[in-house]
Design a protein around this nucleic acid. Sequence first.
DNA 1: CTTTATTTTTAGGCTTAACTAAAAATAAAA
DNA 2: TTTTATTTTTAGTTAAGCCTAAAAATAAAG
Lengths: 218, 218
Amino acid sequence: MFTLAEENYLKAIFHLEHESSGEVSTNAIAESMETKPSSVTDMIQKLAEKKLVVYKRYKGAQLTEKGKKIAANVIRKHRLWEVFLVEKLNFHWDEVHEIAEQLEHIQSEELITRLDKFLGSPDFDPHGDPIPDKHGVLKRTEKKLLSEIEKTQKGVCVGVKESSADFLQYLDKKKISIGTKITVLGKEFFDGSMIIQVGNEQFFISKTVAENLFVQTL
Amino acid sequence: MFTLAEENYLKAIFHLEHESSGEVSTNAIAESMETKPSSVTDMIQKLAEKKLVVYKRYKGAQLTEKGKKIAANVIRKHRLWEVFLVEKLNFHWDEVHEIAEQLEHIQSEELITRLDKFLGSPDFDPHGDPIPDKHGVLKRTEKKLLSEIEKTQKGVCVGVKESSADFLQYLDKKKISIGTKITVLGKEFFDGSMIIQVGNEQFFISKTVAENLFVQTL
DNA sequence: CTTTATTTTTAGGCTTAACTAAAAATAAAA
DNA sequence: TTTTATTTTTAGTTAAGCCTAAAAATAAAG
Ligand SMILES: [Mn+2]
Ligand SMILES: [Mn+2]
Ligand SMILES: [Mn+2]
Ligand SMILES: [Mn+2]
């Protein structure tokens, strides 16, 4: 129905709309897709013709309902495949993203219906990201960045903002995964760094780390 | 490493080489891929530059060792995915080919290694076709077309030559699947039609059917 | 309110993988 | 061995999706 390139643009716009509301700028799309702004203009004009985005020259793009639904479905597929790779094929959570980037474009409604069932209709992917339902509805959960919680508070890790292999491997080294309890022992006003407790270990983390870990406060 | 189009051409040439030995003609490739001969010429010239086929003008194409290996690997992936779809997702054997046509192009050595293990390293796909090993080696098994066996002989169904949904659904209706025992009760010299016994049922089959069923004689 | 900087779009090109139409080579028939 | 038919290749287009360079619009400074 839609090309690989079209699906990737819709997905990128969808993610950017969730990061900051309103229209998404040409440059923002270009940056997130590692492509040139001129290429983005070409594509959003094509998507506008197909009524997948609303586009006004120099004003950026916004997904239509139809565009949103398609994007959410691609994301649903991506995340279901990530669950498959981790739960069934025993991949590690830092290895699955690239493969899911390919698998998310496989066209077959029936395949996804059956895959979802096979996996037990999971609600979250291996990185803690919610899986949209078959209608493209994404239920938002209560979660905060670790950087937002205060000294002496406890939280349980429910997801990662960044899911680069580097970051995930850092978390492994520190024994942090989805479900891990974290206590904030100290918070440095100056640079946002923290001292946290994980299990019996206490250690230092940078602001960068704290800003990329989602927690639910206990 | 190789584009989707390149992989599909290599696969088609591989299959054609097994149907009749020697060079594969431009027209034969075009027909099997539902494309035009001029497009085929373009592509085999490109494949020849990449040393995946040997090509002499007006003489057709032949896979090099490298070309054969790549083709066999695509076929390996196709068949492993078909096993996955049938064994794990409970698809029916007439529904999996189109989806496997897409999945066979997913790029990840590790994925295939793990998928193969997950499936218990199967030797055959749901249509009875052998799955090449990781080095691209395809072990040939003893099998004949049902049309080649004689009256009063018995065989067990080990595969299908055609695997169109129409044919597979016909076989279902007749209760024939991989492993089914078939006895040839009569064979019409005139048109190659047969009377066969499957379970307690005896019925007529056309030459077309007999020429598309592989059996091992008992 | 100009001037300058940034963002975005247009114009023109490139590559891949198709296509049609015409030319060239090979195979088959007379 | 000509003539005819078939197969294959070449030449020239097209569409998608990218690119660079230049122009136009918008935003930020002075
Ligand atoms: Mn991912
Ligand atoms: Mn994920
Ligand atoms: Mn198949
Ligand atoms: Mn098969």
